[in-house]
Nucleic acid binder design. Sequence first.
DNA 1: TAAATAACATACTAGTTAGTATGTTTTGAG
DNA 2: CTCAAAACATACTAACTAGTATGTTATTTA
Lengths: 197, 197
Amino acid sequence: MTKASNTRLTILQKAFDLIYKKGYQTTSIDEIIATTNVTKGAFYYHFKTKDEMGIAVIKEIVKPAMHNLLITNLDNATKPLEGIYLMTKSLLLENSFLKFEYGCPASNLSQEMAPWNTEFSAVLNEITLEWLTTIENVIKKEIINGTVKAGINPKQVAYFVISGYWGIRNFGKITNNIDCYHSYLQELKLYLESLNS
Amino acid sequence: MTKASNTRLTILQKAFDLIYKKGYQTTSIDEIIATTNVTKGAFYYHFKTKDEMGIAVIKEIVKPAMHNLLITNLDNATKPLEGIYLMTKSLLLENSFLKFEYGCPASNLSQEMAPWNTEFSAVLNEITLEWLTTIENVIKKEIINGTVKAGINPKQVAYFVISGYWGIRNFGKITNNIDCYHSYLQELKLYLESLNS
DNA sequence: TAAATAACATACTAGTTAGTATGTTTTGAG
DNA sequence: CTCAAAACATACTAACTAGTATGTTATTTA
């Protein structure tokens, strides 16, 4: 890793931390560079605008982290739909990248940026779509295996699962408490079991 | 209605519109007064700070509207848990107070304000809690009626329902499309039916 | 090694923001 | 009608923000 690309990464990581904690708008460039050894000149050498940096944070920090979370969690499940449960549980309780009091980074950014920045929305949409189709495929596979009811609609279930996850993260954020996650996970388990054949 | 209280209400309503569309941070006081006949002097006569106004918007606009939505929708259902479905459908598709492309006001504000304003969170929590207990009570009643399985946990179901609603609104906002609402509602119906005894 | 360019550093600017100081007008009680 | 308080109007300020202008230092490449 060259010194320059290290500077770039430092900016992105610190920016992610601040944006995740406080939101994009309330995170100023001055604040990002004040809490690193990076100067304004260096910042604007690497990024033309604040928004260009914001997009880079999503593409280079959030997206790979999310992708990694999906892959590692959905693959090694033994029972049908257990992967979806384990993934959600991991996202809510066991992951060090995510803090319960800060919500879901992708969801936070969606909420905040969607009204006035289509580029942000587009990149966040990519992440979401990957997630959606991954879950959909897990269910399709189980239907073929015969372990899940043939009548159910994989896409519907995927929407249902991701929505629930996003929403409960909002709960965790607003109440600043993980109790709701346990309630949610229990009900998620029951719901997923109701899909079994 | 006196002229003064009319001014106050004008501010709150316009502020709500802008905050709902664009978020709290990006809505400036200058913008609020520019799009009304209200001057800065009048604004600061009615509200000491921007945050005091923001809290008032939640308490006096969002909360009553939300309360009204809950009451009118949950009461006149004929089948068990139909009220929950109808309420959600109304919130997603049929309500004029809510626009699919702007998300849920309470959820939006939670996401945006929770990290740095506990007062906002507290008021939003009140709204959420009322919603939660209302749903919980609907389910408890049905369990007593014998129309819903005795084994299920009303609080868990309430969390599950609200989370799903919040999450799918996020989807609608990010994709700028209502298609996902139809998918979600179909799956919600199936989920609710699985709770019937 | 020398020049070119990449990578950074510093000081500044123009615009926006919440909030204030200091007025004037409107309203309602006596 | 009067006058005090309520309700509003206007001009301003201090702080912050993204972004720029203009440098200097570090790295390559020839």
